[in-house]
Design a protein around this nucleic acid. Structure first.
Lengths: 248, 248
DNA sequence: CGAAGGCTTGATAGACCTCAAACACAGTGG
DNA sequence: CCACTGTGTTTGAGGTCTATCAAGCCTTCG
């Protein structure tokens, strides 16, 4: 956490892309050459807004972001959560207008990378292009799972599923220590992600805690028995595509 | 091999990609060289199955497909509808395992293209790579909108929204004639797409018909006053990214 | 003609929302 | 040091939306 050594964010990006696809040493070197602007944002800050025509992408270095759509009557629908290493507005490379907003759910550090630099990188390094494309495809896979989660599961299941997903994604980037996952989400955040009301989320969480399936305290999440929680939330991590790099 | 004029499906693909991005004459020519296998499928047929490791992509030439996830207790969640010109399993190029199935909602014609041919095409033609990437990004944008649709709208709104989307997408590929849109969806299909029950979908459709906002007959859909239906379903076509090719 | 698939409609039940008030806790400033 | 404020959590009660169940009907098709 906190103090980033020089270029530590580069390594975060490289590690993430390595976990998604195979990069050559040359490609890793090219990534290290990317120009960036590092910025700190606070809880509730907006990183990119629906309707924007962005000229840069954002790499989450530290913290927690979400994509969301603002709806009438002050409602909100969160469409994804993001952990360090993610580039949540990569689609801006090929879609001119943001169809959703990007906001911080915790104090965070983001690195902005100009589209121009990424385009050049992608044009000269097909391996990097493939890795970034793959990252956006995994995003899409997660969206599909969320559609199923919201469309066809009970509140209890939806909450269980989200907890599994956040835990697993956080674990995949090495931020789970001693079974403890940083967890800044409020009941309102979870509600907006699952299409529920905060009250219902609270009741589901309480039930899970009462059953000893979930431990929440100090902005940290522990899942004593992942196997049971998985079954409850019908969580099958295949949709995260963490380890199925294609074998062409 | 189908009864289509020589290469008619090629032109369908080229037209679709032209509508998404700009292709050079050379790139269009390269697309015409793609090897394909044309197949007819029936209503309810499965084109690709969850868990598969596909070695080819599918181009919908004619008909109507959907992506869906099979859920416990015989339930189903549809995550997208597809019209001719779409390549609904393009993600297979970079994701080894299908996280969902692909099925036909009407008698359809599909063209299978080997991954190997597409990979070669993409490696030599950055413009085609960008167009295909963009297609998958638009898919993702539609998934996000569906999350919002299912998560935060009433049944009446959800159905209105879906009707607007299907109409608009069909129109964009030139298949709406005299205000009539081919519409093979059953109430069960719409229910599985919106996270509702068929009964509730039926009631919403009936209400819309009673209000004169929707005309359904003979597997065709007409929307007499799109403006009102849009407002009801909060349908803003921006998320379809039909005309916002980036200006780099 | 019978069967199958889909549509229609009513009645009942249940999941979840909304409203509301109380509670806990951290940060702030006098 | 202690009120004060703001944000988030907790809990109850009532209401509503939508699911479920069930039966009848209609078309298509073998």
């Amino acid at each position: 956490m906190g103090s980033h050594g020089t270029g530590s964010w580069h390594e975060r990006l490289i590690a993430k892309l390595q976990s998604i696809a195979s990069l050559s040493g040359e490609e890793a070197e090219a990534l290290r050459g990317l120009p960036v602007t590092i910025t700190s944002v606070n809880d509730h800050d907006v990183v990119a807004r629906e309707g924007d025509r962005p000229s840069r992408c954002c790499l989450l270095v530290d913290g927690f972001l979400c994509r969301y759509k603002a709806m009438p009557h002050g409602r909100r629908q969160i469409t994804s959560f993001h952990v360090p290493g993610d580039m949540p507005d990569l689609q801006g490379l090929h879609l001119a207008v943001m169809d959703h907003s990007l906001g911080a759910l915790a104090p965070s550090t983001v690195a902005f990378i100009p589209h121009s630099a990424l385009v050049e990188l992608v044009d000269h390094h097909p391996g990097i292009a493939a890795a970034l494309w793959r990252e956006t495809l995994i995003d899409a896979s997660i969206f599909r799972e969320w559609i199923a989660n919201i469309g066809r599961r009970t509140s209890y299941q939806r909450v269980s599923h989200i907890l599994c997903e956040v835990f697993r994604k956080t674990e995949a980037v090495g931020l789970v220590e001693d079974g403890l996952c940083p967890f800044p989400l409020t009941t309102a955040d979870i509600a907006d992600a699952t299409g529920l009301s905060p009250v219902e989320v609270n009741r589901a969480l309480h039930k899970l805690e009462g059953e000893g399936l979930v431990l929440l305290s100090e902005n940290q999440l522990a899942i004593p028995d992942m196997e049971i929680l998985r079954r409850i939330g019908e969580f099958d991590p295949a949709y995260l595509h963490l380890a199925d790099r294609e074998a062409r």
